[in-house]
């Protein structure tokens, strides 16, 4: 699974470090060969700005993502940390991190992805997602907000993934295999009417509706004034 940070085409980072209350989380990419991840980890730990160079005692939580966890892999990672100093290494579990209460009043920044999202790739973001390019069959886009595709949408999309029933999915060419908004799922029809251009999907009650993009502005106004049947 690719997270949006790993999808950056250039300067791909295999190891991302994040601070949590009781230590540091090292997220290791799970979509590349493990040797590369190990090299990247060693490089991160080795350089002078490494979080451990200050000598403070910190626990390292290692997030292996979807990679199968074998004793060899765990051993190699532990060795990489021990090369830097006496560091306690633990496997990261979601529950360790206590999420700060999300501030619902602040709009989240949209994530803009440029390029083709291919089969097996996934773009996931807390907020709106904008794709400048095609979303191919077999690709997944998951957003807690809206999804806009400036290109051909032919993959799986899930807008309002954390329950937002007002989220929409819009595309220049609207031919998704499957659209989900909040908890409502809609399969593709057997064949799309051509051209399926400039359309968006939204919820009307527990039904999903697909309309021409020219209706989008009107729809947004309805939503703002809370007149939409949702």
């Amino acid at each position: 699974m690719l997270t949006n940070t790993a999808l950056e085409p250039a300067g791909q980072d295999y190891v991302t470090i994040k601070g949590i209350k009781n230590g540091l989380v090292f997220k290791l990419a799970d979509d590349v060969h493990f040797d590369k991840v190990l090299d990247a980890l060693a490089a991160k730990l080795g350089n002078g700005s490494s979080p451990f160079s200050s000598g403070a005692k910190v626990t390292a939580f290692v997030d292996y993502g979807n990679r199968e966890l074998t004793p060899e892999i765990q051993d190699a990672v532990e060795k990489a940390f021990l090369a830097v100093g006496e560091i306690q290494v633990k496997v990261y579990q979601e529950a360790i991190e206590d999420d700060p209460v999300p501030n619902k009043l602040l709009p989240k920044a949209p994530y803009v992805y440029k390029g083709t999202v291919r089969s097996g790739q996934m773009v996931e973001h807390d907020g709106d997602v904008i794709i400048i390019g095609n979303v191919n069959p077999g690709a997944h886009i998951v957003a807690s907000g809206d999804i806009y595709v400036f290109g051909r949408l032919r993959g799986y999309v899930h807008a309002g993934a954390s329950g937002n029933v007002r989220a929409i999915v819009a595309a220049a060419y609207f031919e998704p295999i499957q659209v989900r908004i909040a908890t409502v799922i809609r399969r593709s029809p057997e064949a799309y009417a051509h051209p399926a251009e400039m359309e968006f999907a939204h919820l009307e009650g527990d039904q999903m509706a697909v309309e021409k993009m020219s209706f989008l502005q009107h729809f947004q106004t309805l939503i703002m004034s809370d007149k939409a049947v949702i």
Partner: peptide, 17 residues
């Protein structure tokens, strides 16, 4: 064929990576 094109797409993604 759909299946072959989809697998090709997956492979192209991996080659790009």
């Amino acid at each position: 064929e759909q299946a072959a094109v989809r697998d090709a797409d997956r492979v192209i993604g991996l080659l790009e990576a």
